[in-house]
Amino acid sequence: MEKLEGRQYGYIHPGNDDCFIRNIPNQQIAGYSVGILYIEHVNYPMMPGNVVNACTYHFPVRMMAVPHLTNTRLFEGDPAIADDIILAARHMVEKEGVRAICSACGFFGNYHKLVAEALDVPVAMSSLVQIPMIQAMLKPDQKIGILTANAASMTKKLFENCCVTRTDNLVVQDTRHTKHFANAVVDMAGYMDNGKARDEIVSLATELLKKDGSIGAILLECSDMPPYAADIQAATQLPVFDFITLIDWLHHATAQRPYSGWI
Rank of each mutant, 00 (worst) to 15 (best):
R62N: 12
A182R: 07
Y111K: 05
R99Y: 14
A116N: 11
I263E: 02
M133R: 12
H41V: 07
A230M: 09
V98I: 08
R166C: 12
N169E: 02
T70V: 06
A124K: 13
F20H: 14
L246Y: 12
A124P: 12
F181K: 09
V34N: 14
T254A: 09
T178C: 06
L238C: 05
A54S: 12
P226E: 01
P45G: 02
A124D: 06
M154A: 02
L246V: 08
A184K: 05
C19R: 15
A136E: 07
G31C: 04
I232F: 09
L138T: 13
H251M: 05
A205S: 15
R22M: 10
A184L: 03
I244C: 07
H177A: 04
Y259D: 08
I21R: 15
V66K: 09
T70H: 06
V129A: 00
T72H: 00
A152T: 13
V93M: 05
P226R: 03
L37M: 09
T148M: 10
I131M: 11
T165N: 14
A197Q: 11
H252Y: 15
G35V: 02
R166W: 03
G190W: 09
Y259H: 13
A80I: 10
D120W: 08
Y228I: 03
M154P: 04
D187H: 15
H13V: 05
A230W: 12
Y191K: 15
S127F: 07
L158A: 07
D212N: 15
G15D: 05
M133G: 09
R62T: 02
L74H: 05
V121S: 13
T167M: 02
F59T: 04
A255R: 06
N50H: 15
P227A: 02
N23Y: 11
V66Q: 01
V172L: 14
A30I: 07
A217Y: 06
F108M: 04
I86W: 00
L147Q: 04
V34R: 15
S126K: 13
A149L: 07
D17P: 01
P48I: 08
T254W: 12
A82T: 14
A89Q: 02
F159M: 08
M46S: 05
T245P: 10
T72S: 09
I85H: 02
A184N: 03
M192E: 10
P25E: 01
S153Q: 03
R176K: 14
D78F: 04
F107V: 00
C55L: 12
H91W: 05
D193V: 11
H252G: 07
A88I: 03
Y228P: 07
N50G: 08
I29E: 07
C19M: 15
A65G: 01
T56L: 04
Q142K: 15
D168N: 11
I263R: 15
M125T: 03
Q173C: 10
N43G: 03
A88C: 05
T155H: 14
Y259R: 14
P25D: 00
A230T: 14
H68S: 03
E76I: 01
T70F: 01
A197W: 12
I101D: 07
L204S: 11
F107K: 02
A118N: 06
P67M: 05
I81C: 00
A30M: 03
V121C: 11
P122D: 04
V93G: 10
M154E: 00
Q233V: 05
I144G: 02
M192Y: 11
A184Q: 07
I144K: 14
I134H: 13
